[in-house]
Amino acid sequence: MIHVDRSEKIYIIISVALIAVFFVAVAVSSFVYGIQVPLPESRVDPRTIATPAPGNFFGEPGLYEVGPGKYNAYIMSQIWSFTPREITVPVGSTVTFYVTSKDVQHGFRINETNVNMQIVPGEVSKLTVTFDEAREYDYICHEYCGVGHQTMAGKIIVTEQ
């Protein structure tokens, strides 16, 4: 075996314990508490996904109410904009975002929330957020998608009840 200095041994044990604590903290916050990353939702054909068709929400992207205070937002990304560019919901709403791309890769992030997703053509990214404050939020593209990338953003307006 390797000869290890005693002080270094203690240090190694503390380091391993530390990373184990971090691991548990991450596991609990994601799988128990519910701060989860985007997981496989559905796959689509990027060449046809923007075409309106029965049952294809991305053909008519926008906000769909699915229950009291609950919404699904279907957002199409393309160079260099999101459709729709603006969404209005009442305060306290829980919105599930479904985002895909009909051309290159994009990103979707709602600032000051935990909604942050890679948008990959052929895949649908999905995350949920509850808006507890009446204010505006930007959603922005965070993946380089060409020379107009810096203009690609939208706005969520959370209104008083």
Partner: peptide, 23 residues
């Protein structure tokens, strides 16, 4: 090690303050 706990911890708390992401 204290620095690791402080800096990683602050990012972790930022995440917790921003709410859940599943229904």
């Amino acid at each position: 090690i204290l620095l690791i706990i402080a800096l990683w911890g602050s990012a972790y708390l930022t995440m917790l303050s921003r709410g859940v992401t599943i229904t």
